[in-house]
Design a protein around this nucleic acid. Structure first.
Lengths: 196, 196
DNA sequence: TTGCATTCCTAACGTTCGTTAGTTATTTTC
DNA sequence: GAAAATAACTAACGAACGTTAGGAATGCAA
């Protein structure tokens, strides 16, 4: 009867959530069963319920954590008194680094949030919408101050956020370039464009 | 005992596939049940099996059709003798228009292909990889001819393809701008960048 | 209008799912 | 080292799933 190994000051629940994020990313929330998760954790399925309330709680914890990370960052960036272009770059670099380092939760949050149960679904939708509006405001600010071209800011947000989420494929591919190179490439393309 | 209405020369199977694409897009492949689909089609679940072999066949038909549409287009574009920049723009506009007009299948194919069963999964993976390589080659060609900046072409492909898939959120939002405007905005941002 | 193919229905199958109950083993606390 | 708390186990539940079997209704060709 081997127990869950609890190392690095992390509780058993935290370990389960971490393994769940990995599993949800790999198979999708619906396709990942509690028995799958149990096997990865090294325990019987029923034992998981000593640490968590339900499968949906796992998704909720993951999504909430990701949402809070990005909300905190945009709070921080908005407060700085720097040009909009720098604000955008800081935010963009944060997105890229999150996708390079903590990508499992981010991908799950991005892709599986629809399966959240109420009231968390409504909360998440609201937080997401608010975040995008604040992001668009930064771009609008840059347009007003002639730092950016006159484009539709919500389209720009849409492009940026989805472009970043494409870093997932980078993880799967035989990475010919480093994370740092990827970051610089993305910044260049998105801010300065492909054309010479 | 109401039959499936078969209008516009489309067979009953085609109608089922169409409704399935819509349902898979809305709920995800795994979360969408055959009973859900039956309800949308207006029939009992078992009746669907007079027209299709299995649930997974539906996904397979959708993904294969999308993959073929894009493969045909890149065949066409590659054959033209025009600058790489124009090839890219043509391809990009095709992606955008597909996402504006036939987006349901495209989204499902993009997001749910992992649930394909063998050998279709391997085939799809191969076709996808090949497509991206050909796409990257067009960009590399542009770099060599000084039409584009010196960037990593596979990163550029990654950004472009995922940026386009973000058009899905555009469908959901109260579209303040038109499809045509969206298309021009995306072309501008991706090819010329945000910065002025 | 009869005969045949098609399309639908009801009923049910075997599986897998998330989860609970009750029990046993391990760790922590004093 | 006994008592209490924690975390694992086995067994099983009811529900939902994809799918099949077999029969009834419908549409089409003669």
């Amino acid at each position: 009867m081997g127990r869950i190994k609890t190392e690095n000051n992390s509780s058993r629940k935290e370990i389960i959530v971490e393994k769940a994020a990995n599993l949800f990313k790999e198979k999708g929330y619906k396709a990942a069963s509690m028995r799958d998760l149990a096997e990865v954790v090294g325990v019987e399925a029923a034992s998981l319920y000593n640490h968590i309330k339900s499968k949906s709680e796992l998704l909720h914890v993951i999504c909430l954590d990701v949402a809070n990370r990005f909300t905190n960052k945009i709070d921080e960036v908005e407060a700085e008194e720097i040009p909009a272009k720098e604000k955008l770059e800081k935010l963009l670099r944060f997105h890229i680094r999150e996708m390079l380092n903590n990508y499992e939760d981010v991908i799950v949050s991005d892709r599986e949030w629809k399966h959240l149960s109420e009231p968390f679904l409504s909360n998440f939708r609201h937080q997401r919408r608010t975040y995008r509006k604040r992001f668009a405001s930064i771009i609008d600010e840059g347009i007003k101050k002639k730092e950016f071209k006159k484009i539709d800011s919500s389209t720009a947000v849409l492009i940026i956020l989805h472009a970043v989420s494409g870093i997932e494929s980078f993880h799967r591919s035989k990475q010919k370039i480093s994370g740092k190179e990827l970051e610089e490439n993305m910044i260049t393309i998105l801010i300065n464009g492909l054309a010479k």
